[in-house]
């Protein structure tokens, strides 16, 4: 097992290829559990997981919660509106409070990059990053890679295009870091104002032109235009953005015939992806959600050290 000695999951840039492979491998039997009639194994009985979300999220939080519950962990959800954060408590104190209640793993989402790293340095709990600022969203990338491997048979040496707001996307960064470890050619497509500085130095190919970027790719990962993150002036209008970067059927046709289309959701239909593509056979957007639970189960299992034979039955 490639996860011995690692306390936290802070990002895919910190993981080895073997560790990622281990997570993806373990996620396969986990997915079987989700598809069973009785979706529960006793593996993590007596373990406590707290999700601490400083940003609104439905699917990621629910996904973690169900992953924990399917493995019989006790789960508690804290969000900004119900926690003590609004009273002005420091992050350090909030974390300490959760720790001393006996929590084994804290799943944290925060609008500020590096917060999970800070938390990990200041607690004995295990920390899982559920998305921090514009830094990383490792479990999203893991479920994307799982979905790719499931459909393509492998995640190695593929051409993967990531389309949209790369600058503000932690999903893009985690996918880049993860896919590169498997020899993939990663392309990023978007307007110059939504490109991170020096992104080519990370080893990706940069395209401002959607058609050029999609030429011959095996996978297209479409990013949500996060309106709430847009600073004024990064692009003129949503209409113009859609005109240049929306994934339409014509644009999908430029990729490989067996192309796979991913989207982390929630979608802005007609902005970054057309409905006809989102609802077509090439898109696996709903299956990504199922896979997300499986990958998170695998992660919780590996991190909290359940016995392997318990999940086989």
């Amino acid at each position: 097992m490639g996860f011995k000695g690692r306390k936290d999951l802070l990002g895919l840039q910190y993981l080895t290829r073997d560790e990622i492979t281990t997570i993806l491998d373990v996620a396969m039997p986990m997915k079987d559990i989700i598809l069973r009639d009785i979706k529960k194994v006793p593996t993590l009985r007596g373990k406590v997981m707290v999700t601490l979300f400083y940003e609104p999220s439905t699917r990621t939080r629910t996904s973690f919660e169900l992953a924990g519950k399917y493995l019989s962990a006790d789960t508690v959800n804290l969000t900004v509106s119900t926690s003590s954060v609004q009273k002005g408590e420091s992050l350090r104190d909030t974390i300490k409070t959760i720790e001393v209640m006996g929590t084994d793993v804290v799943v944290i989402r925060h609008s500020m990059s590096g917060v999970p790293n800070y938390v990990a340095q200041n607690t004995s709990m295990r920390v899982i990053n559920a998305g921090d600022g514009i830094h990383e969203h490792p479990t999203q990338a893991l479920l994307d890679m799982y979905s790719i491997r499931e459909k393509k048979g492998t995640v190695e040496n593929l051409k993967v295009a990531i389309l949209g707001d790369i600058l503000h996307s932690r999903v893009a960064r985690s996918n880049i870091f993860g896919l590169q470890k498997f020899g993939c050619e990663v392309r990023v497509i978007g307007p110059p104002t939504l490109m991170p500085p020096d992104i080519e130095k990370i080893g990706v190919k940069k395209y401002f032109n959607t058609e050029e970027g999609l030429e011959g790719v095996d996978v297209i990962n479409v990013l949500r235009i996060q309106k709430e993150r847009q600073r004024r002036g990064l692009f003129p209008t949503l209409d113009e953005y859609a005109n240049l970067y929306c994934l339409t059927r014509d644009r999908v046709a430029l990729a490989q015939p067996d192309v796979l289309v991913l989207h982390p959701g929630p979608m802005n239909r007609g902005v970054e992806i057309s409905s006809e593509v989102a609802d077509s056979q090439v898109a696996v957007i709903n299956e990504q959600v199922t896979n997300g639970v499986a990958v998170r189960m695998a992660l919780l299992y590996l991190m909290m050290g359940g016995a392997r034979d318990e999940i086989a039955g």
Binding site: Q13, S113, G114, D132, G133, I134, H135, E136, R170, R173, P196, P197, D198, I199, K201, I202
Partner: peptide, 9 residues
């Protein structure tokens, strides 16, 4: 630069 992209800051 490169590191601000890597660290998401």
């Amino acid at each position: 630069g490169y590191y601000s992209t890597l660290y998401g800051l």
